[in-house]
Design a protein around this nucleic acid. Structure first.
Length: 360
DNA sequence: AAGTGACTCAACCGCGTAACC
DNA sequence: AGGTTACGCGGTTGAGTCACT
């Protein structure tokens, strides 16, 4: 325990970095790797604490950082992952390659959170503030189940993020970078690194599919113990929740958002054509059947769909989707569809946005 | 043009914890 | 086993910028 005293030293510079300092830090890391952050400033000739150097590097100087406006898809990704993970920015950043946790955190706090609030959505729970309006019979159970699954998935994502991070650390030296760039995967660690990244999506799907199978197989008889390690929810609830839970739904992505215009047009949609009107038009929002447990997806859809656009198109699962519709009432099927879409989108998200092989 | 309030985001602070001795 | 150190994370701050009056 105990806090690092690194920043307590007098004579260390604070505040904004100068181009000269950036240059020194960049040059040093390019040549030697960062190694021990604590020792780095002295070696690099910087009057900064190691912590400051690390922050400057990870949030600004790293060459694999994408800067500039967030795309609509990135926004949706953040919202969905935030619904799952909460304020665990580093875990979210793991699935938004080239964006830093700090940047995502800032973007959330300055943009997305406000938009959600403006629309009457609680940015913490991702549910409408007046949740009772959206709760029909039986939905509260599903909502509870969703959060339970989120809890589980959250733990998994966290572990995955840790692995990715470890891989990055392992490759932090220039020598290792060279080895990888030659593409020989000569060392076991390099091999593991690349295979980890490519295998992760399958693993992810396997786990979730297994979940689905186990829960689905109980067929309402209450047989089998499908509780996850963190579960505190009754098995009955789980059964209701997850029968066919991950069976994919044929895309409702009938509309299209012209890729070239997606940024601007959809940003328009976010804001509403006439400024705040759409953002404030909660009555219209409530007019459609929006399940509370799946609010994020529903609302991101809404934002994109008024001009025949669907945010699903890039996230929607592919051809092996099974259609599992039609057995329930209109309301329920809508709810189920949305749930499925929501979780399938997140699955896709996880699968598609695993970080590029680390550069450092 | 000047003043002012809102917004953005880089950087800092403090905590938790893994790693090390 | 217990103490110390170093790192990484999330929350917060404040300087710079922008928009409006």
């Amino acid at each position: 325990m105990g806090r690092s005293p690194c920043c307590d030293k007098v004579g260390l510079k604070k505040g904004p970095w100068t181009p000269e300092e950036d240059q020194k830090l960049l040059a040093y890391i390019e040549e030697h790797g960062h190694g021990s952050w604590r020792a780095l400033p002295a070696k690099a000739g910087l009057q900064r604490c190691g912590k400051s150097c690390r922050l400057r590097w990870t949030n600004y100087l790293r060459p694999d950082i994408k800067r500039g406006k967030f795309t609509l898809q990135e926004e949706q990704t953040i919202i969905q992952l935030h619904a799952l993970l909460g304020n665990r920015w580093s875990a979210i950043a793991t699935h938004l390659s080239k964006r830093t946790d700090n940047e995502i955190k800032n973007y959330w706090n300055t943009h997305l959170k406000k938009r959600l609030t403006k629309m009457g959505i609680d940015p913490v729970s991702h549910k409408p503030k007046n949740d009772t309006l959206f709760c029909r019979d039986g939905q509260s159970k599903s909502v509870a189940n969703l959060s339970h699954m989120a809890q589980w998935e959250s733990a998994r994502l966290e572990a995955e993020a840790r692995l990715v991070k470890q891989s990055r650390l392992r490759c932090s030296s220039p020598t290792e970078k060279m080895v990888r760039s030659v593409g020989e995967s000569s060392s076991a660690s390099n091999y593991k690194l690349t295979t980890h990244v490519s295998e992760a999506p399958d693993r992810c799907l396997d786990i979730l599919k297994a979940w689905n199978r186990v829960c689905g197989n109980k067929d309402g008889n209450g047989n089998g113990d499908s509780e996850s390690p963190t579960s505190t929810i009754s098995t009955t609830g789980l059964t209701e929740c997850s029968t066919n839970f991950f069976e994919l739904v044929a895309g409702n992505s009938s509309g299209s958002c012209d890729n070239e215009n997606i940024g601007e047009e959809c940003e328009e949609e976010w804001k509403g054509k006439d400024g705040n009107q759409k953002a404030n038009s909660i009555p219209d929002f409530k007019g459609i059947s929006v399940p509370s447990g799946n609010f994020v997806e529903s609302f991101t859809d809404l934002l994109l769909s008024s001009s025949g656009t669907s945010s699903h198109q890039n996230l929607q699962a592919d051809g092996d989707s099974n259609v599992a519709l039609g057995s329930s009432s209109v309301n329920n099927s809508c709810y189920d569809d949305n749930n499925k879409n929501y979780w399938n989108n997140i699955l896709d998200l996880v699968n598609s946005s695993l970080p590029d092989p680390p550069l450092f």
